Measured scan of single mutants.
Amino acid sequence: MTFKAIINGKTLKGETTTEAVDAATAEKVFKQYFNDNGLDGEWTYDDATKTFTVTE
């Protein structure tokens, strides 16, 4: 399945996608990506659209 992340950061904005077997796996991938890029913020997840949003 394809999962999307919308990034609303102070220094980084945009979208990225990942292929994962479930939402928990996708969340781990996205959180690692955000940690690697120095992002920290509020997380939400919309199961209907398979979209994570992080707002810094």
Score class of each variant (00 low, 15 high):
M1Q: 11
T2P: 04
T2E: 08
T2Q: 10
F3V: 01
K4S: 05
K4R: 13
I6D: 02
I7D: 01
I7F: 15
N8Y: 13
N8L: 14
N8P: 03
G9I: 14
G9K: 07
G9E: 03
G9L: 15
K10Q: 09
K10F: 12
K10G: 09
K10A: 11
L12T: 08
L12Y: 14
K13Y: 13
K13D: 05
K13A: 08
G14W: 15
E15Y: 14
T17W: 14
T18L: 12
T18N: 02
E19G: 03
A20P: 01
V21G: 05
V21W: 11
D22G: 01
D22M: 01
D22C: 03
A23K: 12
A23T: 05
A23R: 12
A24S: 08
A24P: 06
T25Q: 12
T25N: 06
A26F: 01
A26V: 01
A26R: 02
E27K: 11
K28C: 08
K28F: 08
K28W: 09
K28G: 07
K28T: 07
V29T: 08
F30Q: 00
K31I: 07
K31V: 06
Q32D: 06
Q32R: 12
Q32P: 01
Y33V: 05
Y33L: 08
Y33Q: 05
Y33H: 06
F34C: 15
F34S: 04
N35Q: 14
N35H: 14
G38P: 03
G38K: 07
G38L: 09
L39Q: 05
G41S: 06
E42T: 13
W43H: 01
W43I: 07
W43K: 01
T44W: 07
Y45N: 00
D46H: 04
D46F: 03
D47K: 07
D47A: 12
A48I: 10
A48Q: 10
T49C: 03
T49M: 05
T49Q: 04
T49L: 05
K50L: 10
K50A: 05
T51R: 01
T51C: 02
F52C: 00
F52E: 00
T53E: 04
T53W: 12
T53M: 09
T53L: 07
V54Q: 03
V54E: 01
T55F: 09
T55R: 05
T55A: 05
E56C: 13
